[in-house]
Design a protein around this nucleic acid. Structure first.
Lengths: 155, 155
DNA sequence: GAGCGCCTACTCGGATATCCGCTGTCCGAGTATGAGTGG
DNA sequence: CCACTCATACTCGGACAGCGGATATCCGAGTAGGCGCTC
């Protein structure tokens, strides 16, 4: 999986806590990652409609809707793409013993199981929202650290 | 995911039905794929202990144990490796607002959810065996085609 | 005819090129801000 | 004092290189089977 997914998720959590637009450069510095590359991930989030960008001074990114309405799956699919990891190439229709297409009404059993596993994976990500992540961070991090981070973001 | 996973699974199903060792070249021709590259996947299966190779004339690959004792997850992990797709880089410990390591007793919430999803995915693959796949192929494919394939393999 | 040795052909195994996608970077388009100026 | 204009600096967005891993390939090591020779 693309490593940018992790960055995108962390950025969404940060944006959830920030009340004002946050520039990509500040998010990059906060996480100590490449600003240019993080910008690309944020653009993907923007194209997916999860975040909205504002240009000019005091501009930046902010969430388009409440964090409770954004799932981890939304972010993952925005950055990694919605296509499943496994793609059936219909091996059974090739070679000297190829199954004729009219006999392939039912999908390949292998593909079916793979799709089932993929759905289970996605479902696990769909039931967790950015708000859930932010809440867990809030409860497990000392308040002093959170306040410092808020102040640093606003500065 | 590596495309060779699909080939490896199909090969295991074929080996399940074949009573004698099958050479890699024959498996490749049957599926109409690159013999050299398929050989690499079979070597991975061999290293994982799922299949056993026999050299010399009338040699080839055969399963090391009953197909009911080999899960799809075994094959997937043998070829794609056992490491999860998502790897947490501990972003929270970096940057100006880094969380001190002693405060990181609990894993990053994002990583926890990702690991949970990964376990769900693997569990979906663990409950299906090669024997299950072979049984489904047997019931959904016309007997005449199956017999032709058997004969072609033995020839 | 039986046993032995060798030879051949076939098999796998690992080392070797090639290509595509993720990673990382840059510069141009667009806009909110703020100062400056005129009424 | 207010409103308008403009210059500025900051923002995002898309286009451009670099590298690692998956893809694809090849040749050498090793072995089972078969043939021929000898006894």
């Amino acid at each position: 999986m693309s490593g940018g997914v992790e960055w995108g998720l962390h950025c969404c959590v940060v944006l959830c806590g920030a009340g004002e637009p946050v520039p990509a450069a500040k998010l990059a510095k906060l996480h100590d990652v490449s600003p240019s590359y993080l910008a690309k991930q944020l653009q993907l989030l923007s194209k997916a409609g999860l975040v909205r960008s504002t240009q000019g001074q005091s501009g930046g990114y902010r969430l388009t809707r409440d964090a409770a309405e954004i799932t981890m799956l939304d972010v993952v699919e925005a950055i990694d793409g919605p296509q499943p990891a496994f793609r059936c190439t219909e091996v059974r229709r090739r070679g000297p013993m190829a199954v004729p297409p009219e006999r392939c009404a039912t999908p390949c059993p292998i593909a079916r199981v793979m799709d089932s596993a993929d759905r289970a994976w996605r479902e696990s990500l769909r039931v967790v929202t950015i708000a859930d992540l932010a809440a867990e961070v809030d409860t497990t991090t000392p308040r002093e650290l959170l306040d410092r981070a808020r102040a640093w973001l606003s500065a």
